[in-house]
Design a protein around this nucleic acid. Structure first.
Lengths: 153, 153
DNA sequence: TATAAAGTTCAGTAATTAGTGAACTAAATG
DNA sequence: CATTTAGTTCACTAATTACTGAACTTTATA
C-alpha cells in the first residue's frame, strides 16, 4: 500500500466515525489528495478499486450532503468532482439545525416531568439555555467568517 | 405505545443519526422525560424492556462520553444516573478536537498534491483557513458561555 | 458463610448497513 | 440505427454493529 493509499484509508476511517460510509470517506480522501480538481467518476473508481455501484451511491450521498460538487468539461461527457467550497458556511447552518432539533427534544421531554421546581428540571433547563445560546451564537460566527473571507479576497 | 414510550423511541432515532446505538439514545430519552434525577439501572432496564447486558453496555458508553453521570445514594447500593451538566462545555471542546483532526487530514492530503499554485490548492487552503477560524473561535464561545452561566447564578 | 442483589462479560444471534456485479437507461458517436 | 460510453439501479452477499441471555464477579446482608 502506497503512502497515499494509506492516507485515503485513514480518511475513510475518520469519516466512518462521523457516520459516513467508509467508501464516502475514501472518496473525500482521494479528492483532497489528488493533483487536480478534475476527478472523473472513472478516476475515482479505478483508484479506489471499488465497484461502480458503490462509487455511484457514495458520490451521490456526498453530493446530497453538499460535501462535494460535480462539474462538467465541455466536449466531454464525463462528470468531474471536487470538494465543495459553498459547504463551508453550510457546516455551521447544519449545526444550528441539529441544535434546534435537540432543543425540541429537551422541551418535549421536560413536559413529561410533572414535578416542576425540581432540581432535575432546573438542571435540564440549564442545558436548554445552553443550546439556546448556541442557536444564537452560531449564526454570528457564520457572519464573522463571511466578513473575514470577503476581506481576504 | 404510550406517548412517553413513543417519545423515548424518537430520541433513540435522533441519536442514532449521530452515530450512537439506538438503545443509548433511548436511555437519554428516558432520563430526560423521567420525573426525577434518581434513575436506577433497574428503572431504566425495566422501562425500556431491554436486556441487562444492553443497558449496561450503553450506560457505560454514555458515561465514557460524558453525556450522563452516575451517582449513589447512601445506604443503597444501586447506581443512579442522570444527564450530565459538566458535559455542556465539553461539547464545544470535542468540536475543537474534531476540527483539529480534520485540519490535519487536509494538510496531509494537500502535501500529496505536488502542483502548488493550482486553483485546487488555493481552494482547499481556503477550507483549511475556515477550520483554523473555527479552531480559534470555538474556545471563545466556550468562554462566553461560561461567563454567561456564572452571571445567571 | 450461605444467599441475595447489582451489575458485568461474553458467546451467539439478530438486525442493519455497505459493497459487489450484472443488467439496465440515457446520451453521444461512428 | 447500431455501438460505445457514463453512470444508475437493484438483488444478493459480506461485513459490521447491536442485543440477548446466561454465567459470572463483587459487595452486602441474614
Amino acid at each position: 500500500m502506497t503512502e497515499k493509499e494509506n492516507y485515503i484509508e485513514q480518511v475513510g476511517l475518520f469519516y466512518e466515525q462521523y457516520g459516513l460510509p467508509k467508501m464516502a470517506g475514501r472518496i473525500l480522501g482521494y479528492l483532497i489528495s489528488s493533483d487536480s480538481d478534475n476527478n472523473s467518476f472513472e478516476d475515482i473508481q479505478k483508484s479506489l478499486k471499488a465497484s461502480k455501484g458503490s462509487i455511484s451511491g457514495n458520490i451521490n450521498l456526498l453530493l446530497k450532503q453538499g460535501m462535494i460538487v460535480k462539474h462538467m468539461i465541455s466536449g466531454d461527457r464525463k462528470s468531474y468532482y471536487k470538494m465543495s467550497l459553498n459547504s463551508l458556511e453550510s457546516i455551521l447552518d447544519s449545526k444550528v439545525n441539529s441544535v434546534t432539533q435537540f432543543k425540541m427534544i429537551l422541551e418535549t421531554g421536560l413536559s413529561f416531568d410533572l414535578n416542576d421546581n425540581s432540581l432535575k428540571k432546573k438542571n435540564l433547563t440549564k442545558i436548554l439555555n445552553y443550546y439556546e445560546f448556541l442557536e444564537n451564537e452560531i449564526p454570528l460566527l457564520r457572519n464573522k467568517w463571511e466578513e473575514k473571507a470577503n476581506n481576504q479576497m
